[in-house]
Amino acid sequence: MTQTVMKIDDLHLSFPVSRSLLDVVQRKPGKSVNALNGVSLELKQGETLGVVGESGCGKSTLARCIVRLYAPTSGQIHFEDENIFGAAARKDRSYNRRVQMMFQDPYSSLNPRMSTGDILAEALRVHQMRPESEIAARVAELLELVRLPQDAADKLPHEFSGGQRQRIAIARALAVEPEVLIADELVSALDVSVQAQVVNLLLELQDRLNLTILFVAHDLRLVRHVSNRVAVIYLGRIVEIGDSETLFSAPSHPYSQALLSAAPSLDPDDKGAAIQLEGELPSPLNVPSGCPFHVRCRHVTAQCRTVVPVLRVLEGRGEVACHLAEEVNQHA
């Protein structure tokens, strides 16, 4: 059994919405966006955990909570048995070094006025990774690691293509020798042919440096390709989590089934098999009662409207949060 590096426990996060003047006059209570509604996860040493879901389901919020960009309303995250939101951990900045985040947009996540060399050197200096005299050599080493030419150190971000910029972002994250990487839609902004290059690089570096990766993306094919395990998120809750191949070949939750069948197949003859989902993701301002998916689900019963299903192990599959998991999967 591999070691658990990070344990996320019943994480809740809600953002208050500012009340309008009318609300105040009418004495309406303030509303809040419930971005995370009890997410529990374990991240194991050396694995890639894929996180998928529609936009607005809370997958990026989860990623940001993990790197302490947001503080959760309730719930805890333990990294090597220490609560990262505890007083001791807040003082200790080593967590910031050991868990690194890479962002979606390669055009806004790099300082346009700093050369690649400066961007990488800054990370090294802040965390005192190398004495001043060795920094230049380390920058060269990092550029080689992500296969950028050595003259890249003197160039500014705008001189690079999207794929190259994401390589710089990867190099910056790796500069401080982290153990966990959080990749939030790392390749979503890139063209298909360039996407493959960056994904290959990430997989290769993971093997070489024994990294643990949380891979957040909406491209299901890509997530299937890179992940060992996958979590499907719907309205701030995990509805299904399990081994990547099992989940993709036989999804158990009605939402996972619909999500996976909605991805257009490359085979022109493979038409019409898709499960059509009615309606859209409800607003996180008012999450439906009971199972959050019940308003779009084909199998809905009275129980689904009132009782929130919890994640439970399904024989031969992963963990599923659905009252009717057994019945839904009988025919599958």
Partner: peptide, 22 residues
Amino acid sequence: LMRSVPQDVPPRTQLYSVPGTP
């Protein structure tokens, strides 16, 4: 383009990629 899309390839293997950029 077709081969860069990860479909029907063994998971966690190197994807086919077109070298260089447009």
